[in-house]
Design a protein around this nucleic acid. Structure first.
Ligand SMILES: [Mn+2]
Ligand SMILES: [Mn+2]
Ligand SMILES: [Zn+2]
Ligand SMILES: [Zn+2]
Lengths: 142, 142
DNA sequence: TAGTAAATTATATTTATTCTAAACTGTTGA
DNA sequence: TCAACAGTTTAGAATAAATATAATTTACTA
């Protein structure tokens, strides 16, 4: 609850009304110090359990989309079956743990510059993202 | 039709029965000299128009999945709303043209080595893929 | 605090994908 | 050659993520 006022400000400044649903979603998403990667289903579950509040699925979708439009969340294309969202909106890369189906941030500084020696006429590059898929390294389960 | 026998062989050797639907799908996918990126919907449309044949949606899905399992196709995660598939199964990267919603191959040699200065204990990297989103470069529409 | 626009919600709809089960086809061995 | 059978195709049903709808509720403002 400590940050609720801060979120109310943030929402107001963004031209989004600070409803109790949106404040709760902010708390779930942004209280954590670390980057938070989630699917809609996971977010709903967290709100219901950890936050002990019922928010309709439609509102969760609406809020996530509103936050994306404001630049507070980013969608990560990973998997055709459902979208992943990311509270880290800086330019960065990812490991995707195929065992756990979890994203892990790779800070931009931890990836050497990605040099693309090819251009498409009339097009410019808008973003470059690296996804490294990882799996358990069962070399010698001693 | 020139390649039909070749596809019949390929399918037989893969332990997949060469049915007329599968041969037609092979022709659409593999006759082209260039890499072919497609969605299921696009593939169905091509089969019906260009190839002038009716193949059920279920068969198209089944065949694409069968070909993926055999390593003849690769799924490209791009967009949560539908899957993209790729006839280029070598290790390579992509431009994604956001204007046209089209993938463009970037040969592995056209991307400098991607150096990830970070490891996750107990995990090993299975693949590293780069996606560069591109848009029209309307710098001076003269 | 009333009026209004914005937001929430339950519910319906859409759409990609998968499943089902009946009909059909390719293969094989007698 | 062809019967038998497993594998395949198919229409249609089911599933599930995402979006739309429209009535109710809430937040803001005057
Ligand atoms: Mn899928
Ligand atoms: Mn979306
Ligand atoms: Zn991230
Ligand atoms: Zn490709």
């Amino acid at each position: 609850m400590a940050y609720a006022d801060q979120y109310i400000d943030k929402l107001r400044k963004s031209g989004i009304r600070p409803t109790k649903q949106r404040i709760k979603i902010c708390e779930v998403l942004f209280d954590a110090e670390k980057t938070f990667h989630f699917t809609i289903k996971e977010l709903v579950r967290i709100i219901e359990n950890q936050a002990n509040m019922k928010v309709s699925l439609a509102t969760v979708y609406n809020t996530v989309h509103a936050f994306m439009k404001k630049g507070y969340l980013k969608e990560i294309p990973l998997n055709a079956s459902q979208s992943y969202y990311d509270t880290n909106v800086t330019h960065h890369h990812h490991f995707f743990d195929e065992d756990e189906n979890k994203l892990i941030d790779i800070h931009q500084d931890d990836v050497g510059e990605v040099i693309i020696k090819r251009t498409i006429p009339g097009k410019k590059i808008r973003s470059v993202e690296v996804i490294a898929k990882i799996v358990s390294d069962n070399q010698s389960q001693k």
